[in-house]
Amino acid sequence: MEADITLRVDGEDRKVTVDTRTTLLDALRDRLGVTAPKKGCDHGQCGSCTVLVDGRRVVSCLSLAVARDGAEVTTAAGLADADGPHPVQRAFVANDALQCGFCTPGQVCSAVGVLAEVKAGWPSAVTEGDAAPELTDAEVRERMSGNLCRCGAYPGIVAAIREVGA
C-alpha cells in the first residue's frame, strides 16, 4: 500500500511516495537518492544508517517512512553548512577515525547526537551517580557502542569526538 509523505531532508522538503513497508532508510536511499546513510544490517544492530530525526539520533532502518511523515531528517550529507563540514566530520578526518568509510556517515551522525545528549546532561551506563556526565573516553565508548566499525577505527573515533567536545 502506498502513501504520500513529506520529509525535510538535509534542509530541503522532499515529497515522496512510499510503500507502507518502506523504511526511512530505504525511502532516503532508494526513493530520494540520499545515499549518505548506509545499510549495514537493516536490523538496528550496526548503526550505519544512523540519522538525526528531529534532532535525535536514531537508526533509520527500524523506522517506517510513513510513520515519519513531516519529520526533519539530517544525514551526514546535511551536517555540513556554509562553513564546510561539521566539526565532527573534520575531527574524524584529522584523527583518521575511519578506514573503509561505510559506517562513517552513521558514526558522525551518532557523534553529533552524543555531543548534544552529553550537553543536555543525559547519563549513560558508565555515568557515576546522578552527576552531569563528562566526555571521558569511557563515556564516548559506551555512547558510541551502537555504531559498529569493522575496520577498527574506534580509538580514532573516540579521539575525534573528545576533541570536538572539549
Partner: peptide
C-alpha cells in the same frame, strides 16, 4: 590525512550500491 576522508565523512563516497542509475530493478 586520508585522501578520501573528506568524501567519506559526508557520506558522499559512492559505494557499489550508491551509484546513481535510471529506474533500477531490485
Amino acid at each position: 590525512a586520508r585522501a578520501d576522508g573528506p568524501l567519506k565523512v559526508l557520506g558522499a563516497a559512492p559505494y557499489a550500491y550508491d551509484q546513481p542509475l535510471t529506474d533500477p530493478l531490485y
